[in-house]
Design a protein around this nucleic acid. Structure first.
Lengths: 150, 150
DNA sequence: CCCAGTTAGTTGCAAGCGCAACTAACTGGG
DNA sequence: CCCAGTTAGTTGCGCTTGCAACTAACTGGG
């Protein structure tokens, strides 16, 4: 019945990556979910605006590699909660520059501090060498298909 | 505006893991989607039955760490496509042993061979050492929260 | 100066998901 | 021997997602 006894899901890289990603995301996900009722995309948009200042939705799409409809809905949700405001551009009225409100900036400060601690805690189980290799491999995996698509 | 200039999403482990997992899964996802119209959970159920022979839905849940409702729907879908059949147990009529049909086994053989190739192709960009460390780190990340929850 | 093509962002819809509630079947202490 | 508790699996529901179609606004070649 086994066509290939050498192959096993538990050694299949996409599977391992998904399991690890899911497990590693869980703890922090609970924080922004319980504390601010946010979804992942909302946290990411909040993060980008907090980190990089004013941005358009388009720019966030490109940086974060998230589809524009997800961004659109996340922006709306964050706007409804008064975490960001839109600034229409008179030079091009299709474009909206987004920026965090005071409340949004406070949420960003809170969450990014927690994220940093959480990350350090996660990374603490590995040696310096392991961390370096892990990060480099992950970067490479994330980048490779994008390059292939271009 | 930046509360912590040292923190960046692109170095945040859960984020990197998710990006890498998404990118790495894409190529193979297209195969089982286009070739068999399967969802990820369906492929995983197919895989488990192909690899381990007869199993109950419960056993697949535990091994694959997938919620029972997802498994239930995946089993139904695979059954509808005649890829598996259910065997009621007379000793305990709540339990259903699942096993692949000939068509299911053929799909498993096809997909697992592709998965093996795909995995090798993905791994080929790394050195032996990198592969070993990457796999070990991912395993550890995937296992850690489960242990913490027990 | 205008219309075909492009771009920024939104929306409708169908599909997948998580959760909680449910059914059906089994188990064991009193 | 029975009913309270547990287990295997399913279903209904509301929410998130992805896709394609849409609106509104801009651009540039003829």
């Amino acid at each position: 019945m086994k066509s290939d006894p050498a192959f096993d899901l538990s050694h299949f890289l996409p599977y391992m990556l998904n399991q690890a990603a899911e497990a590693a995301s869980l703890g922090f996900q609970q924080v922004y979910k319980q504390r601010y009722g946010m979804l992942r995309t909302e946290w990411r948009v909040l993060f980008h605006l907090g980190r990089h200042g004013e941005m358009t939705a388009k720019a966030i799409c490109e940086r974060a590699r998230i589809h524009k409809t997800k961004i659109s809905r996340a922006v709306k949700a964050l706007e409804d909660r008064r975490f960001l405001i839109r600034h229409e551009q008179q030079s091009d009225r299709r474009v909206e520059l987004l920026s965090l409100t005071r409340a949004g900036a406070a949420a960003y400060a809170d969450l990014s501090a927690i994220a940093r601690d959480y990350d350090q805690q996660l990374a603490a189980q590995f040696s310096e060498t392991e961390r370096a290799i892990l990060r480099q491999c992950l970067q490479q995996l994330a980048d490779l298909p994008a390059r292939a698509r271009e």
